[in-house]
Simulated scan of single mutants.
Amino acid sequence: MPHEVRGVVAMQPGAPVEVRTVLVPDPGPGEVLVAVLACGVCHTDLHYRDGAVTDDFPFLLGHEAAGTVEAVGDGVTGLQPGDYVIIAWRAPCGGCRSCRGGRPWYCFDSRNAVQPMTLADGTPLSPALGIGAFAAKTLVAAGQAVKVDRAARPEAAGLVGCGVMAGFGAAVNTGGVGRGDTVAVIGCGGVGNAAIAGASLAGARTVVAVDIDYAKLDAATRFGATHTVNSTRTDPVDAVRELTGGFGADVVIEAVGRPETYRQAFYMRDLAGVLVQVGVPDPQMRIELPLIDLFSRGGALKSSWYGDCLPSRDFPVLIDLYLSGRFDLDGFVSETIGLDEVEAAFARMRRGEVLRSVVVL
């Protein structure tokens, strides 16, 4: 019998979200029903709301979530009711060419629940990133539910499910930051600050935070930035070069997703340096660079998909770092809100007033 809950739904592009009645089915084979405890408000939800991801409206928003397994479907192993989990939007299939090739973090056929969640009138909902967790319950594929230590408070733990993992992994997994490296991070929101924390924990000796907001730069220092640059006051490329002995950074992480910041990141690298793009751009954006510069500067230009993470491996590690006091997940939580406040939280996000608003259910 379907479970009737309240959920935050984007009905049409650009329109304010609505809190509607949502019907969540019992889990079928390979699925789990999760009682959501907390879910972060991420920029990706705003992209869905604005129609910048797909046009499969209506969307059930929310995807940075922690909760408790309430029921499991046939064939599910390794999970049982009562397990405390973070929900991932990548659940490697094990059979695609990437999984078979030993790179499950790039899985090209990631699993989601098969049964749809619907509005009360039966209209199917498209869950954001295959999750849809701005609701008291959600249905996901079993591989999306990753067990972690229940000592981690859900407001913080849920953020590992997207933004924190994306930023941390961009530095550690995609960028390969190591001991003694110099790193620059452009954009010090939730993703950028997670990248700063990851770079610091990986042993980078210099971590330069670049942003246009002094409040965000102050936050960056708490997550491990050794230097800050306000790019409205100085040329960030020149500033990063000056802070790295005139050479540029070994690894530059672009966490904004705009052509102008990508160009800055490209030129603030050292020769043969690595550029990692983790900021999500608007599909209409374009960039042009001199081909001779692409050739002559060498190095690597990488896009980071979800921090190139393997959730079953990486989520528990980040939670352990948090519980040991080495990774300040609580520092990402700017405020806690209710379901009815998501639209207002989007406005605060646009104005750059928060790292993360977190819906508590």
Rank of each mutant, 00 (worst) to 15 (best):
Q115H: 14
E254G: 15
V183E: 08
A345P: 02
N112C: 13
T226Q: 00
P116S: 11
D308Q: 06
V276N: 12
A345S: 15
G132V: 00
D340C: 01
N193M: 10
C42H: 14
Q144C: 06
L119A: 13
R20H: 00
L139P: 12
L289E: 06
R150D: 13
I253D: 11
A204N: 01
G40V: 01
F108Y: 08
S304M: 03
C162S: 08
V252C: 13
H47D: 11
A300E: 10
F168S: 04
E64F: 14
G169L: 05
G75D: 03
G338R: 13
R356Y: 02
I287C: 12
G30V: 06
L37V: 08
F266E: 06
L294V: 10
D250M: 11
P127K: 02
L243N: 01
G158R: 01
V32K: 03
S200W: 12
T261C: 00
G67H: 09
F168E: 00
Y262W: 12
T68R: 15
E31Y: 10
T44E: 09
V191P: 10
G158Q: 04
I292G: 15
G73S: 05
V256F: 09
V207W: 01
T174K: 13
L23C: 11
R286Y: 07
V342L: 00
E70L: 11
